[in-house]
């Protein structure tokens, strides 16, 4: 894939490619209004393409996933000395602390494990930045645009070898429900036994 990729981007590449520059510390900031209005356009655009709330959620989630995939290398190179997490709990803690702090300026409020299903974890955040200026219409009360952030988390987990489905729900603010595949849990148990 890499040789293909190089063939595709060639002639127009700026004199210094992004790989020639050193990695930024990631502390750059833009105004909240800029981001909020861009996100609003993103939601409206997706909304015009679909006819139901679940479809809208799916689309927003997919766009979040695209963002998530690109964050993986950025964060593991910068924060973890290029080493990926291999243990499930460490991975979740990484997301709750390091990733959240980097992206949103603070840790997620809580990380919980479901009592009745060992495959399910919850990441809880009272007020996700994407929901700050969004008022959900009454007829679309199940819509939670933080599904965009759920998409980010899902892509990161999946690409790091922890197959999971992540959804966003209105509960204690927003709760992201992370449901891992059976085999991810089994593998993690095996590792613990060693």
């Amino acid at each position: 894939m890499s040789s293909n990729y190089v063939a595709v981007i060639s002639q127009v590449r700026p004199k210094t490619s992004i790989l020639d520059k050193s990695l930024s510390k990631g502390r750059g900031e833009v105004n909240l209004s800029t981001f909020a209005l861009l996100f609003s356009e993103l939601v409206q655009y997706c909304q015009n393409k679909v006819c139901s709330v679940p479809e809208l959620q799916t689309r927003l989630g997919e766009i979040g996933q695209e963002v998530g995939v690109k964050l993986i290398d950025l964060y593991f190179v910068r924060e973890k000395n290029c080493k990926r997490e291999t243990k499930l709990l460490n991975m979740l803690i990484f997301i709750k602390t390091t990733l959240w702090k980097g992206l949103f300026g603070r840790e997620a409020d809580k990380l919980e494990h479901a009592n009745d299903d060992e495959r399910i974890y919850y990441i809880i955040e009272k007020e996700p930045v994407v929901n700050k200026f969004i008022s959900v219409p009454k007829d679309k009360s199940s819509l939670n645009c933080a599904i965009f952030i759920a998409g980010i988390v899902e892509a990161i987990l999946n690409s790091c070898g922890f197959a999971a489905k992540v959804t966003a729900h209105w509960h204690k603010g927003t709760t992201y429900m992370v449901q891992f595949d059976e085999n991810v849990i089994a593998r993690d148990k095996q590792m613990e036994e060693r």
Binding site: N31, I63, E66, V67, L74
Partner: peptide, 22 residues
């Protein structure tokens, strides 16, 4: 905590990028 009126610029960059590629 980041200034609450600010957002991490990488989140913004990648969100815009995802929009354009969509």
């Amino acid at each position: 905590r980041l200034d609450s009126k600010k957002v991490n610029s990488e989140l913004f960059t990648l969100t815009y990028g995802a929009l354009v590629s969509q």
